[in-house]
């Protein structure tokens, strides 16, 4: 009787198992690396209707964040500025620029400039801007160095792990309330040591919630 399978077939089951293990490893690595906001959201820099440069307006002109995002310290929602805010200066500066045409049209018609929303959390996560900026959490913690961005790009993952990292250790992230809108400033911990950060968190009664309902409703 002739042999149907060669002798090497004896090791085949083992080799298949080893290959499946390797394949599972590759798949796990792929999911871990790619299926997270660290990959899907960081670096998102959509083309906006007007190529507004934060770098020019903040670093070069020294305009405060709140000049345009005027409700950030009063409301949970940090507003995109009205076109009237742009026209405060641009009714006299660069009045003929074709790049600013959408702003002029919006100001004349009352329709919104169709800005593209970049930083977005899932609808079940509620983030309150005022609660954070009024307690020493700087814009830079979540948005990165916007003051150096020619085009705004998503800078942090804004995942739940990202939020909790700071909610568990607020003393390492808080700034002097005077420094909140200065994106080049240092945290209290970096300036005066972690003890100073702990003291600030205590004195300002900062109790970042870690319970589900703190952020989810």
């Amino acid at each position: 009787m002739s042999k149907i399978f060669p002798k090497s077939a004896n090791s085949l089951p083992l080799q298949i198992i080893i290959y499946l293990v390797v394949l599972t490893g590759i798949a796990t690595a792929g999911v871990t690396y790619y299926m997270t906001p660290k990959y899907t959201r960081i670096g998102y820099a959509p083309v906006q209707p007007v190529p507004f440069s934060h770098e020019k307006h903040v670093s070069e002109l020294g305009i405060d964040c709140r000049f345009c995002h005027s409700n950030v310290d009063k409301s949970g929602h940090s507003n995109v500025p009205t076109s009237q805010t742009c026209m405060n200066c641009h009714n006299q500066i660069k009045t003929d620029s074709p790049l600013l045409a959408p702003v002029r049209e919006s100001y004349a018609s009352g329709d919104s400039v169709p800005w593209v929303w970049i930083h977005k959390t899932p609808d079940y996560a509620y983030f309150n801007h005022a609660a954070h900026v009024n307690r020493g959490v700087s814009c830079v913690e979540c948005h990165g160095k916007i003051n150096e961005m020619e085009v705004v790009a998503h800078n942090q993952s804004l995942s739940m792990a990202f939020c909790l990292e700071c909610h568990r250790n607020p003393e390492t992230r808080v700034r002097d309330p005077k420094d909140v809108y200065d994106l080049n400033s240092q945290t209290i911990a970096a300036k005066a040591g972690v003890e100073a950060g702990v003291k600030f968190v205590h004195d300002w009664k900062i109790k970042p919630p870690q319970s589900c309902s703190g952020c989810h409703r």
Binding site: K38, Y44, P46
Partner: peptide, 8 residues
């Protein structure tokens, strides 16, 4: 990770 992109 971290590469700039413009699509949604």
């Amino acid at each position: 990770r971290g590469t700039k992109f413009t699509s949604a």
